[in-house]
Amino acid sequence: MSSNGIPGPDSEVALRVKAMESLLLEKGLVESSAIDELIDMFENRLGPWNGAQVVARAWSDPEYKAWLLKDGTGAIADMGFAAVQGEDMVVVENSAEVHNMVVCTLCSCFPWATLGLPPVWYKSAPFRSRAASDPRGVLAEFGTEIGADAEVRVWDSNAELRYMVLPERPAGTDGMDPEALAKLVTRDSMIGVTNVAPPG
């Protein structure tokens, strides 16, 4: 990286990326338009607003919720959010008794179709190293306290199997429609490091 942090020819890594891109394009191994299309998809079209709609529907429709917990891949595809790389989705439900949290200790596997690209902290060594060995400590860093009588379960994602948390529906949301409910659901609550806060 350049000393001023600005990418340029003096940044060795930026130069290496540029060299790789020019060879890939020159040899017809990738198309420039495909790169632009994928950047647009990952930045603008895939994101936690998709997962929030899945959660809101599950909170509103018991039959859908049962389907989602039994066959996450199928129930999520029903919302139009298809797997990007053919991976399977498993949805785990939070309750007063069980709190679930997702990690990828080996790298950064994440449910792209429903949550988009993983946040920087999810890919970081501190989270990857500690999520499984000290989950309550990790949750406390996010300001999430889980009662001693509740069980904490940690799910380690891999390339073929991606987990998403179905957070608990907060109090004070009776009568809210799925559209309003979806607005309450955060990315971090679907990774399981936080809970969904009540409205207001």
Partner: peptide
């Protein structure tokens, strides 16, 4: 600490964005 990385931008520099697109395209 984990929390130090919270709210960091997805891409710090443009080459990171290009790399993400290129690898997925490949």
């Amino acid at each position: 600490s984990i929390i130090e990385a919270v709210d960091k931008p997805q891409f710090h520099e443009e080459w990171e964005r290009r790399t993400m697109g290129m690898v997925n395209a490949a």
